[in-house]
Design a binder for these strands. Structure first.
Lengths: 199, 199, 199, 199
DNA sequence: CATGAATGAGATTTCATTCAT
DNA sequence: GATGAATGAAATCTCATTCAT
């Protein structure tokens, strides 16, 4: 309480600075020096808290990959209607992408590592597995309640996640390609129609 | 014909070697030396044909981003039924991802550059625009012929592309997550149902 | 006695830890951090007791270079026969090398410093001087008593020390090269024969 | 002939510069930068010719450890008398130490690595084995011819080498301790007396 | 006395790029 | 056209040392 865990704070400070650097200079064009400058600390201290650049990057990945499920679960728990739940699932997911575009992009940067670093692949695939499971549970609930048609929840969840990613990607490549909100509406409706039939 | 453009051939050879290097060592972990060795040429000659590494990389991007539309157009031109065309559009797209996974991944690697290099962003967004347009034309045709429901072709095309990307991504992260073929079928059916109504 | 000189004890503890580190990691591949960890103290405290790493190393040198004469004198003082004394001198010296091989090797590590650090050279040459003198006194005694031939005691002492060092070195480089004990016997006999004539 | 193997020449140039640096700054206190400056080349080129610092150091070791036997064999081959041969063996060995004191010292510096680097230990112990064998052959010849007493040639050779090393060491630590030439004479005589009996 | 977070100099190493041949 | 030796900037990482607590 009196000692506010300086280590955890520093690590956090450095990880945040790293995200900032990646966003500014690009995934592979920032140096430890940049991070130090951005965090307002010395180069040495980064290696005091992190084994090496790889280790730091794994902490960055944990940071940018880790938060969606928590938010989602919190936002859905008060709802009982599967349709409402799925709506929220999608709208929150899309919102997170838009409001933390930088995080999403940094996340995306790690995709280039999946063939070189087993650990990165693991973190990413686990993250997606959790994300898919969250969605699949909602769909399964809807199927069980007879609200949704009888579909394979895992497959359908993959489809939902795919649409969230795919729509976000095109928007990141060119923000003028569509009005994000409108596109999100179209996408959501398409999903729900597929699960319910004509609305 | 008699003079088989040795320059173009050399450039092509070097670009292919670069793709190979990226696939093997990772987007940022290969050196010009690696490329030279892989292409079986000297380091110097690479700089004779390409201004610098960036220039070479832009050629690589052109190569990995550029081939889909040509194939698609060829495969769809003999067909007249919009439903068949869209089916082919999707199945060919999915097939290309699977059969040239490496190219798709190298393509993906360039996504990390969109905020740092305007040129990269341009190439990628143009590529996606063309890809979307191809799809939108098919959908529009279907709408005009009264085969498809009245939808916004551009929006719907975005959705189709999104699903192709999104499904491919999850599969790249973890090939065991679903049987790619089955997932492709589910995805295609979902799209077509959305455009036609109950089949 | 009541106040058990905590400072001296701490310094000793740190010096011993340093020897351990040198033995484990090599003369130039250990850090103050290693020493701190091995000694079970903090990095800061080392600099409280020692001015800097050089200062610490000089203490280490004193430690590893300083113990032989004391032992030798103790082991020889009860004897009167110069032959016996010289036998003991050699056997104890050889024994010390074998039983404190690590110390001998750390000692050896300092030899690399004689051209860079005057102080190191001084300590080492003084140590050898003392060692030689111990030996020379025994030889001189033997000469005076008419037991040994008339030789230059300093020169002969140098030869004795040379043999001890040289035999030890070859053994350190390759412990299988000879049975240390046998070699020691051969060496001692050769020395004594040289001093006495045929035995 | 026209192309005087620039690679070998460069490597040699760099190795020689390294020896110079070790002599000047000490075995562990010189940097690749120092070597580059001394050799009059860039830092980069050193890593072009040598894998890393370790690799360079192994080349240095080969250089400083490798030359004695060749010289010895050449100097002894015209002689037939084992006594003369052994005299030459010792005097040449001592001479080499004195005239290439720097090489001997650099050689000595590697002794600190025998417990950390297996390869170093191997090179050194092989070098000593060859050195000992050269000596043992001379002794054996003398024994066979009945000129020397019946001794174990390998053991006796070890003794000869030990004396050469030991005498050299004390002299390196303090050049004023004895007149090197005189000491060499004393040592040689002692060895020969041991092998022949009273001269 | 004691700690360990923090610093910053400096070391090794990599690599795009140049250029004499 | 083609080579590969050479350069030098820049990156990561280590570590002795300091100092507030």
């Amino acid at each position: 309480m009196s000692k506010p865990d300086v280590a955890a704070e520093r690590k956090d400070q450095i990880v945040r600075a790293t995200v900032e650097c990646i966003t500014k200079h690009g995934y592979h064009n920032f140096s430890m020096q940049d991070v130090a400058r951005t965090a307002g600390v010395s180069k040495g201290i980064i290696h005091y808290y992190f084994l090496n650049k790889d280790d730091l990057m794994m902490s960055v990945l944990d940071r940018v990959a880790g938060d969606i499920e928590t938010v989602l679960v919190a936002d859905m728990e008060s709802l009982t209607d599967p349709v409402q739940k799925l709506r929220i699932f999608m709208s929150v997911s899309f919102d997170i992408v838009r409001s933390t575009k930088e995080y999403y992009q940094v996340n995306m940067d790690f995709w280039t590592q999946i063939n070189q670093k087993k650990e990165v692949r693991q973190v990413i695939s686990r993250h997606y597995a959790k994300f898919r499971d969250s969605c699949a549970r909602v769909i399964e609930e809807g199927v069980n309640k007879g609200v949704f048609k009888t579909v394979n929840p895992q497959h359908y969840a993959s489809l939902v996640i795919a649409i969230i990613d795919g729509i976000s990607l095109q928007w990141l490549f060119d923000e003028t390609v569509y009005e994000y909100d409108e596109m999100v509406k179209t996408a959501s409706q398409q999903i729900l129609e597929g699960l319910i039939g004509r609305q």
